[in-house]
């Protein structure tokens, strides 16, 4: 179960080109769009693509992105509940 969280951290770094951040530096509950990780609006859109491409989940309401992409934890829970 924690594998998914590790996998997501890896994918987020890879997909969003976060060169200066390593997997160990992201805590499950870190705010992805807060100061620590510092994602922006284009990253949020990219995460929607990641969900669909790698997990086959279509985020039907993009406005939900804010809760779903809050942290690695919320994202992982969302995937577990929807796949």
């Amino acid at each position: 179960m924690s594998d998914l969280r590790e996998e997501l951290k890896y994918k987020i770094i890879e997909q969003l080109n976060l060169e200066d951040i390593s997997v160990d530096e992201i805590e499950n509950n870190d705010e992805l769009f807060g100061d620590e990780i510092g994602l922006d609006s284009i990253d949020a859109l990219e995460l929607i693509v990641l969900l669909e491409k790698d997990y086959g989940i279509k985020l039907s309401d993009p406005k939900k992105g804010k809760e779903v992409f809050y942290s690695v934890e919320t994202l992982a829970t969302f995937i577990e509940n929807n796949r």
Binding site: L16, N17, I42, D43, L45, E46, V49, E52, K53
Partner: peptide, 9 residues
């Protein structure tokens, strides 16, 4: 078909 917003921009 997976266009990427961060490339498109």
């Amino acid at each position: 078909y997976f266009p990427s917003p961060s490339i498109f921009v």
